[in-house]
Design a protein around this nucleic acid. Structure first.
Ligand SMILES: Nc1ccn([C@H]2C[C@H](O)[C@@H](COP(=O)(O)OP(=O)(O)OP(=O)(O)O)O2)c(=O)n1
Ligand SMILES: [Mg+2]
Length: 1148
DNA sequence: ATCCTCCCCTAC
DNA sequence: TAAGGTAGGGGAGGAT
C-alpha cells in the first residue's frame, strides 16, 4: 500500500520527493470520501472478461503513466495517501483560504506542493536568506523549476506554484515571458534566476533589482500578434566567421536563452506552472464521440482499417522506422565501402582490416577528396581519441523547417507542426511535433499539446505533416554527410553524428588550427544542406560525442559551435543533468534525492563512487567522465538489430473479445511483415499490454489516449510450424492472442497492445525474397566463414565483435542490414544527373529494392535492371522469380510503399565515387526534362524547388496539369486523391456546405460595435450539396465582399475563417473546384489590398512608426489579422494542392 | 562472477 | 479528432 501511495503521488505531482511522500504516508488520517477502494484486490469488472481458461493474472502489473505527461493524472482520490484533511491543511498553511477559483484538483495539488516544500525546508540546507519571500516561477528556467524551488524552499523562502489573487507573491522568477504574461506580470517584481543563484553563492540576499528581468526586445501587441521574429530561421549567422568561438551572439541577453533549450524535466504530471497538456479528467470530446453511435466502431482500433491509417499518421512511428532504415542504409554503405564495392578499386583498404572508419575512402561517398585521403588509411586505428573531430549535425525545427520550404510566407512566425489544423481546436490535445524558434520564444516546445501552445501563443500557426518530404530531405542530408564523413552514426531522421577527423585535416585554411578547419568545414556542410534542402541545420563540434552534442545546444539555431574542453567547466556550470544526452527525468530525480542537486556545476564535485551509487555503476561513471569532458564512445554505424516490434497504445477502445482478437491478429500480421522485410525470424514473443488503471477515468485526458494504465508484459517462446524461429503471422497471432486471453483483462479495459519479437535469427535460405541478397555478400568475404558463424546463431555469441568478424561472419548483421525495403533511395535530381556510367553506377543492393516498386516499374526498365543485377551476379536466382512471386505480404508492403513512396520512382542508389556525391544517378534512359523557365513555373503556381525534385515523367504530368489548371478544370493525375477514412465520414466530407453548417454555430457578434455583421454561414449555402457549393462561386465572391467589408474594422471571426477555409480546401480537393477556389482567393486578396493595403505597406507603416488616428492604427492591426488569415488559408490549400499535384496554387 | 529475464528509461 | 512508436542501454535480482 505504501508503495502505491508513493506511486500515486508521483504520478500526480511528478517531481515530489520521497521525503515528502514518506511524510504524507505517515501522517495517517481519515479517508477522503471520494476514495474508491484500493484497486489492487478488486477484480476487474467481470462483465466482459475475455472468456479464457485459467485466468492467470500476469506476474507483473506496473502503473504506467506516460513518460510525457500527456495530461494523464491519477485520479485524485485514487488511494488514501494519509489521514490529513486537506482542507484543514490548507487552512493551516494559508489561514482562512478560499479556493473558489480552484477546482478540487488544483486545490489539493497546491496544498501538497506547499507541504512538500515544508518538508524540504525542514530537511533543509540551513540558512534562511529567502525568508519572507514568496516566489513564483514562470515558464522554463535554468536551472530548472524544480531546482530553483528546492533552493528557495531550502533557504527559507516560500515557493508559489501558482498565481492567484489569494496568496501573496513577492517575486516572479523567469527566463522568458510570453507577451500575455508580460502584461499579467507588469506590476510584479520580475527577476532572473541568477538572483537566487548569486544570492546563495554570496550567502546573502542581493537586491532583486540588479537581476530584474527585462523582456528581450519583444513588444507586446494587441491582437495577439507574434512578436517580430526573434531569430530568422533561414538566416545563418555570419559565415564561417571566427572559428573556435561561438557564432555571432544570438538575440539573447540572459546567458541561456529561452531559445533552443530542450524540454526541461518533469515528464509525469504537471509540476510546473504553465498551461496543462489537457484538462484533468476525461476528455470531453472523446466522451461525446464515444457516446455517438457508430463512432467507436469507425474510428478506433475496432475499425477494420485502423492500424494502417494509424501508422500512416503516426509521427513517432515514422521517426522510429526511419531511424532503423537509416541505420541500415549507413551500414550498407559502410559494407560497400569496406568491400571496395566499386569495381577496380581493389586496393586502398587492405582486405584484412575492414573497419568502416577506414579512411574516408572507405565511405565511398567521398568522391574526389578520397583520392587524397587514400594514404591515410590507417587513420581509424592511429588517430588518438583526443584528436577525433566529431560533429553533431541536426536540423533546426526539422518538421517546421521542412514545411516552410513551401510556405515562405510563414517564415519568421510562430509555427508548429501538428495534426489539428486551422484556427479551431481551442482545447485540442493534438501533439506538437515541432515548433519553430519563433514559437519557442513563446515557450512552446516540441511535444506539447496544441492547447498548451495556443495558450502560450494564441497566434500560433499550424501546418500539417509532410512525411514524404521529411524523408526526402533526410536522404539528401545523409548523402551530404556521407560525402564528408569518415564515419557516421544515424541518430534520427534529422540528426547524425559524423567523424570528420580526416576531412578536417584536409580542409584548407591558411594558418589553420584544427578547430578553425573544423569550423570552416562545418559551415560548408551547413551551406550544402541549406542549398540542397532549403532548411538550416546546426552543428556542434568537439573531440567526442558528448561534447559535440553539448556544442549543438550552443550552435542552435542555424549555427555551428566548436566546444573545446577548456570551455567545458564554464558551460557545465550553467547546465542541468537533463541537458546531457541520455539523462532524463528519472536520472534527475535520483540525483536530486540522493545527491541533493541536479546542477552539473554541483554534480561535478561529487566523487565517482557517489555518482555510481546514485545513478548506477555504468551511468554514474559515464556521468563522472562526462563532467570532465571525457567520452570515449565511438560512433556506432553497424549494430545488428535485436528486436522487431509493433505496438499501439492509442485509440484502443474495444467492446468485445472479437474486436480485440481481430486487432491482435492484425498486429501480428504487421510484425510478421516487418520481420520479413528484414529477413528475420524470432524465437521469442513478448506481449505488451496496457490496461486502464481502475482509478483512471474511462476516457483519458488526451483524446483517445491510453491514460494512466497498468502494464502487463509477458514473454513466451515462439516457434513456427516447423519448430524454430518464425515470422509466421498466424503463429505469432495465435500465441499473442492466447497470452492475452490468459491475462483475463476485460476487452473494454484494454488501452494498449504490443507485440515484440526477440531472439532474432536471419531468415533461412529457402526464402527467395530480399534477404537472400545477404548471400551475395558472402562470396566476397568468404562463404565458409559465414556459414560457420551462422551456426553460432545470435550475435550474443560474438561479444565485442572484433572488426574482422563483424563484416564477414555475423549472420545477424548481414541479414539485419542488408535490407531496407522501406526506404529505397531514389534520385533526387534528375536534371542535374550526368548520364549513367555503366562501370560506376551504384545500384542499391538488391535487398534494398522495394519489391513492390520494382515490380511496378515499366517493363523495359525493370528488365534492364534485372539484367544489370544479373550481370553483376549480385542476386542469382531471385531475378527470374521476382515477377512471378508476389511479395509475400503484398497488400501491406504496398501500403507502406504508398505511405513512403513519393510520386517519383525509387530505385537508384546514391552515387558512389566520382561526381557530385549528393546527387544520385538517373535511371537508365533518363527522359529529357521538360523545358520550363522559372518564371513560367511561377506563373503556373508551381514551386520550382518541388518541381525540380520530381522525376521527369511526373514533371511533365505536373506541367500539363498546371497548364490545364490555369485555364479550366482538368483531369487530375491518377492516385492523387486524399485518403478517405471512415465511410461515415465520407458523406459529409464531400459536401462542403453541409458539414460546417451543421457543426458551426452562428458566429457571435464581433466584439465591438458592429451591429449587423455579415456571416459566411448563410442559408443560401446551407441548402446546397456539393454541386450547390460549386455553383456558388458567384455567391461566394459576393459573400466575401460582404464579409470583408463588414469586418473591415474587426478581426475576422474565427468561425467564419474556419468555414471559409473548409470550403476552399474542399474546392481544392475536388476536380472541379480548383479554378474557382483560386479565383475566389485572388478576389479576396484584391479586397484585402484595397481595404488594408499590402502586408508590405503595413510593415512599412509600422517600421516608420506612422501613426494616424486611432482608427488607422486599429485598421492596421485588423489588416494584419486579415492577411494572416489569408496566408493561413492559402497555405492549407497549398498543402492539399501539393499532395495532389506536387505544386502550389498561383493565388497570390 | 556471469548470464538471463524483466523491467525502466531515453531519445527522436 | 487524432494518430502516446519503438529500439536499445542498463539496472535489479534470480538462476547458474
Ligand atoms: N516530441 C517530439 C520531438 C521530435 N519530434 C520530431 C519532430 C522534430 O522536428 C524532429 C526532430 O526532433 P528534434 O529534437 O531535433 O527537434 P527539432 O528538429 O524540431 O528542433 P531542434 O532540433 O532545432 O531543437 O522529430 C516529434 O515528433 N516529437
Ligand atoms: Mg532537430
Amino acid at each position: 500500500m505504501s508503495a502505491l501511495a508513493a506511486d500515486s503521488s508521483l504520478d500526480y505531482f511528478g517531481s515530489d520527493d520521497s521525503a515528502f511522500l514518506d511524510a504524507l504516508r505517515n501522517v495517517g488520517l481519515p479517508d477522503d470520501n471520494a476514495l474508491p477502494p484500493d484497486p489492487l484486490p478488486v477484480p476487474d469488472d467481470p462483465e466482459t472478461s475475455i472468456e479464457a481458461p485459467p485466468c492467470a493474472q500476469p506476474s507483473k502489473r506496473r502503473r504506467y503513466t506516460s513518460p510525457n505527461a500527456h495530461g494523464d493524472h491519477r485520479a485524485e482520490a485514487d488511494r488514501p495517501i494519509g489521514h490529513l484533511d486537506e482542507a484543514e491543511l490548507d487552512e493551516a498553511v494559508y489561514g482562512a483560504a478560499h479556493f473558489g477559483d480552484f477546482g478540487e484538483y488544483m486545490r489539493r495539488k497546491r496544498a501538497k506542493l506547499q507541504n512538500q516544500d515544508r518538508q524540504i525546508g525542514e530537511g533543509g540546507e540551513g540558512g534562511g536568506i529567502f525568508k519572507g519571500l514568496a516566489i513564483h516561477i514562470n515558464g522554463h528556467t535554468r536551472p530548472s523549476v524544480q531546482e530553483l524551488r528546492r533552493l528557495i524552499v531550502s533557504h527559507g523562502g516560500i515557493f508559489r506554484p501558482y498565481l492567484d489573487k489569494k496568496s501573496i507573491v513577492t517575486h516572479v522568477i523567469t527566463c522568458s515571458l510570453t507577451p500575455a504574461k508580460i502584461k499579467d506580470f507588469a506590476h510584479m517584481r520580475l527577476v532572473r534566476p541568477e538572483w537566487i543563484l548569486e544570492s546563495l553563492r554570496l550567502r546573502r540576499l542581493l537586491p532583486w533589482r540588479e537581476f530584474m528581468y527585462r523582456p528581450t526586445t519583444r513588444v507586446e501587441r494587441p491582437q495577439g500578434f507574434p512578436p517580430t521574429p526573434v531569430v530568422l530561421d533561414d538566416e545563418p549567422p555570419s559565415p564561417a566567421a571566427r572559428p573556435g568561438t561561438p557564432p555571432p551572439a544570438r538575440p539573447t541577453t540572459p546567458p541561456p536563452a529561452p531559445l533552443g533549450i530542450p524540454h526541461t524535466t518533469s515528464p509525469p504530471s504537471p509540476t510546473h506552472p504553465g498551461p496543462a497538456y489537457a484538462p484533468p479528467g476525461p476528455n470531453a470530446a472523446a466522451a461525446r464521440a464515444m457516446a455517438a453511435p457508430g463512432w467507436r466502431a469507425a474510428h478506433t482500433a475496432a475499425a477494420p482499417d485502423f492500424l494502417a491509417g494509424y501508422y500512416r499518421h503516426s509521427r513517432l512511428h515514422h521517426l522510429s522506422t526511419w531511424k532503423t532504415e537509416l541505420r541500415a542504409l549507413v551500414s550498407e554503405a559502410g559494407e560497400r565501402a569496406e568491400r571496395g564495392d566499386v569495381p577496380g578499386s581493389g586496393g586502398a583498404g587492405e582486405s584484412g582490416d575492414k573497419d568502416q572508419g577506414e579512411n574516408g575512402a572507405g565511405l565511398s561517398m567521398r568522391g574526389a577528396q578520397l583520392a587524397l585521403k587514400g594514404p591515410l588509411k590507417g587513420k581509424g586505428t592511429t588517430t588518438a581519441p583526443a584528436e577525433r573531430v566529431i560533429m553533431h549535425v541536426d536540423f533546426d525545427a526539422f518538421f517546421v523547417s521542412a514545411g516552410l520550404v513551401s510556405r515562405p510566407e510563414l517564415r519568421g512566425r510562430p509555427v508548429v507542426v501538428c495534426h489539428a489544423q486551422g484556427g479551431g481546436g481551442a482545447g485540442s490535445t493534438s501533439e506538437i511535433a515541432s515548433a519553430s524558434y519563433e514559437a519557442r520564444g513563446f515557450g512552446v516546445r516540441n511535444g506539447m499539446s496544441l492547447r498548451q501552445a495556443r495558450e502560450l501563443c494564441p497566434s500560433i500557426t499550424t501546418i500539417p505533416y509532410e512525411f514524404e518530404l521529411y524523408k526526402k530531405l533526410s536522404l539528401t542530408f545523409y548523402t551530404i554527410l556521407m560525402s564528408v564523413a569518415d564515419d557516421l552514426q544515424a541518430v534520427s531522421v534529422d540528426e547524425a553524428l559524423i567523424d570528420v577527423s580526416a576531412s578536417v585535416a584536409q580542409t584548407v585554411v591558411d594558418d589553420g588550427a584544427d578547430a578553425d578547419r573544423a569550423c570552416v568545414l562545418a559551415e560548408e556542410i551547413r551551406q550544402h544542406v541549406k542549398d540542397a534542402t532549403g532548411c538550416s541545420v546546426s552543428i556542434g563540434i568537439a573531440h567526442n560525442i558528448l561534447l559535440a552534442r553539448l556544442a549543438t545546444r550552443r550552435a542552435k539555431p542555424a549555427g555551428s559551435f566548436y566546444l573545446r574542453p577548456a570551455a567545458l567547466p564554464t558551460l557545465l556550470a550553467t547546465l542541468d543533468i537533463t541537458d546531457l544526452h541520455g539523462f532524463g527525468w528519472a536520472a534527475a530525480e535520483k540525483a536530486r534525492t540522493k545527491l541533493g542537486t541536479t546542477a552539473l556545476g554541483e554534480l561535478v564535485k561529487k566523487s565517482r563512487s557517489q555518482l555510481a551509487e546514485a545513478l548506477g555503476k555504468t551511468t554514474g561513471e559515464a556521468l563522472y567522465k562526462a563532467l570532465r569532458g571525457e567520452d570515449d564512445r565511438k560512433l556506432e554505424s553497424d549494430k545488428p538489430r535485436r528486436s522487431v516490434s509493433c505496438e499501439i497504445n492509442y485509440g484502443i477502445r474495444f467492446q468485445s473479445n472479437d474486436e480485440a482478437e481481430r486487432f491482435v491478429f492484425q498486429m501480428a500480421e504487421e510484425v510478421s511483415r516487418r520481420l520479413r522485410a528484414v529477413s528475420m525470424k524470432g524465437r521469442s514473443l513478448t506481449l505488451k499490454i496496457m490496461k486502464r488503471d481502475p482509478s483512471a477515468p474511462v476516457e483519458a485526458p488526451k483524446f483517445m489516449g491510453h491514460g494512466v494504465c497498468l502494464t502487463y508484459n509477458k514473454q513466451s517462446p515462439l516457434s513456427g510450424p516447423l519448430g524454430r524461429a518464425t515470422d509466421d503471422e498466424k503463429a505469432i497471432g495465435a500465441l499473442a492472442w492466447k497470452m492475452l486471453k490468459a491475462m483475463c483483462i476485460p476487452p473494454t479495459e484494454l488501452r494498449g497492445i504490443g507485440i515484440q519479437i526477440l531472439k532474432l535469427e536471419g531468415a533461412e535460405v529457402p526464402v527467395l525474397r530480399a534477404g537472400q541478397v545477404r548471400l551475395s555478400f558472402k562470396p566476397l568475404t568468404g562463404a565458409g566463414e559465414a556459414v560457420g558463424a551462422s551456426a553460432a546463431g545470435t550475435s550474443k555469441a560474438i561479444p565485442s565483435p572484433s572488426k574482422a568478424v563483424v563484416t564477414t561472419a555475423s549472420p545477424d548483421k548481414a541479414s539485419a542490414h542488408a535490407v531496407a525495403p522501406e526506404m529505397p533511395v531514389r534520385e533526387t535530381d534528375l536534371s542535374h544527373a550526368p548520364a549513367r556510367q555503366q562501370a560506376n553506377v551504384d545500384l542499391p543492393s538488391f535487398s534494398q529494392v522495394d519489391m513492390d516498386v520494382f515490380n511496378a516499374l515499366p517493363n523495359d526498365v525493370r528488365l534492364e535492371l534485372e539484367a544489370e543485377y544479373q550481370r553483376r551476379s549480385v542476386t542469382p536466382a531471385p531475378i527470374a522469380d521476382l515477377p512471378v512471386v508476389p511479395a509475400p505480404s503484398a497488400p501491406d508492403l504496398a501500403r507502406i510503399t504508398r505511405q513512403l513512396a513519393p510520386r517519383s520512382r525509387p530505385l537508384i542508389g546514391p552515387a558512389q565515387g566520382q561526381g557530385k556525391p549528393w546527387f544520385a544517378l538517373p535511371p537508365k534512359k533518363a527522359p529529357v526534362p521538360p523545358r520550363v523557365s522559372l518564371s513560367q513555373l511561377a506563373a503556373l503556381g508551381i514551386d520550382a524547388g518541388v518541381f525540380r525534385a520530381l522525376p521527369v515523367r511526373v514533371q511533365r504530368e505536373q506541367l500539363a496539369q498546371a497548364r490545364g489548371l490555369a485555364m479550366r478544370p482538368s483531369q487530375r493525375p491518377a492516385r492523387a486523391r486524399r485518403p478517405i477514412k471512415a465511410p461515415t465520414r465520407l458523406g459529409s466530407r464531400f459536401k462542403p456546405p453541409q458539414g460546417p453548417c451543421e457543426i458551426v454555430p452562428p458566429p457571435p457578434p464581433p466584439r465591438a460595435r458592429f451591429v449587423e455583421r455579415p456571416t459566411l454561414r448563410r442559408p443560401a449555402v446551407r441548402s446546397g450539396g456539393e454541386k450547390r457549393a460549386v455553383e456558388a462561386g458567384r455567391d461566394v465572391q459576393k459573400m466575401i465582399g460582404e464579409w470583408v467589408e463588414g469586418f473591415r474594422e474587426h478581426v475576422p471571426h474565427r468561425k467564419d475563417v474556419k468555414y471559409f477555409g473548409h470550403f476552399l480546401e474542399r474546392c481544392v480537393e475536388s476536380d472541379t473546384g480548383i479554378e474557382r477556389a483560386v479565383g475566389i482567393v485572388r478576389w479576396w486578396g484584391v479586397l484585402l489590398r484595397r481595404l488594408f493595403g499590402t502586408e508590405e505597406m503595413l510593415d512599412e507603416w509600422e517600421k516608420e512608426g506612422i501613426t494616424f488616428e486611432d482608427v488607422r492604427v486599429t485598421s492596421r492591426l485588423v489588416g494584419r489579422a486579415w492577411w494572416r488569415v489569408f496566408a493561413e488559408i492559402i497555405s492549407r490549400m497549398n498543402a492539399i494542392a501539393r499532395e495532389r499535384f506536387g505544386g502550389s496554387l498561383a493565388v497570390r
